[in-house]
Design a protein around this nucleic acid. Sequence first.
DNA 1: AATATTATTATGTATGCACATAATAATGAA
DNA 2: TTCATTATTATGTGCATACATAATAATATT
Lengths: 230, 230
Amino acid sequence: MNAISHKIIRETLLERIQSGEWELGELIPNEEELAEEFGCARTTVNRALRALAEEGIVIRKRKGGTRVCELPKREAKFEIPIVRQQVEATGAVYRHKIVCRESKKPPISVSTRLHLGADEKALYLEALHLADERPFAFEMRWVNPAAVPHIEEEKFDTISVNEWLIKSVPFSSGDVSFSAVNADCDIADALDVTEGSALFLVDRTTWYDQSFITTLKLYYNQGFKFYSKL
Amino acid sequence: MNAISHKIIRETLLERIQSGEWELGELIPNEEELAEEFGCARTTVNRALRALAEEGIVIRKRKGGTRVCELPKREAKFEIPIVRQQVEATGAVYRHKIVCRESKKPPISVSTRLHLGADEKALYLEALHLADERPFAFEMRWVNPAAVPHIEEEKFDTISVNEWLIKSVPFSSGDVSFSAVNADCDIADALDVTEGSALFLVDRTTWYDQSFITTLKLYYNQGFKFYSKL
DNA sequence: AATATTATTATGTATGCACATAATAATGAA
DNA sequence: TTCATTATTATGTGCATACATAATAATATT
């Protein structure tokens, strides 16, 4: 009665599915029948099944009933972390340094991404993230000053650009891509690796409600890995 | 009455949060008050707030009430795709080729990962994934034959190892890492790129209920990108 | 003052009921 | 046979109510 039965029911059903008691694609008993089996109300079974549906374990259709998902999706979720947290997670001391900061006309690829007019300027920043004073990641970023005017006043000596933006625009959306690139001369120099080293690149563009905020390329130093579970 | 009010309420509350009407960390009205405002039952508000809590937008505490999350988490979710689907998504024709298949004693790093005894053999496979007959990704994999004995009978001429395993063990768990590596001589050869090219590497180990199934390294060809949203 | 005990409070959960809705099956008309 | 109409069914949702639970506040005890 009190042992949060919707969770227990969810668990039980999940076990039946994972053990193969109910095959992939198979129709499972309806809510009413399950409610009777578990000796609870249909509402409770409903909640358990809804949870499984949200997780992609089952598919539910009105009148069609509930069946085990044919192709259980394997998704890896991971946080887009703040670099400082990544560094500190390794036990190292974090520091960041603004290497370059200027207002200038961005290349077309960037002005397109930020939805800027042809002659509009944007803020360009280069920053180096350090772990125990050793280069950890190198960031090349464009910011749309119209979206966050107060950025002009910020020095970024105590807080990184990313952290400042997250505080200013906490609920932005974004596109991200992950890839591997060979370090060119400039980046190799900044990260203190040999030219051509394989670097993990995160390329991200974020916006809030139609207003584009920033686009950046973040090059992680050699040997960096992103971990996740599925 | 019929316009799925819990969704509407969730939306409305989300807007108030995103617009800054309720600040980060701020306590929002309790369920009863909101129910009165929206003219609905507390149950309905509860459902909306529970959804927001699951998304990491708000934090809820008994007696403490509900408050906007201080650091809204930025997580990128993406599917660990089947390579065939990745290839076909680009419009290319997929084919895969088993380059090597043998049963042998794995190195310690692998026997540890697969929880094998010191002298136990495992199945080693190398496969090349092709997009329009051009190398797309190169896979080096160890499989624990004890976990999936039927694998001995499978030729993998119509289905890839990964797809076969997904069908055989649909609900496995796993650890994944993503990184960038320079192509060594063998891999450069397999993917037909110059040695030292930056490759995107996915390293994955999967198991089902304490029984370790497979561990693999998947090297994507140069220029490959993983896309996601946040 | 420090500690243990007892309210108080907002969320968490379960229930029975009613009705809405989408997908299907059954039926009828052309 | 073909198409449109009408049940039927399982899920989807909302509500009022009751009680459980965790965290806090208030109180009493040492």
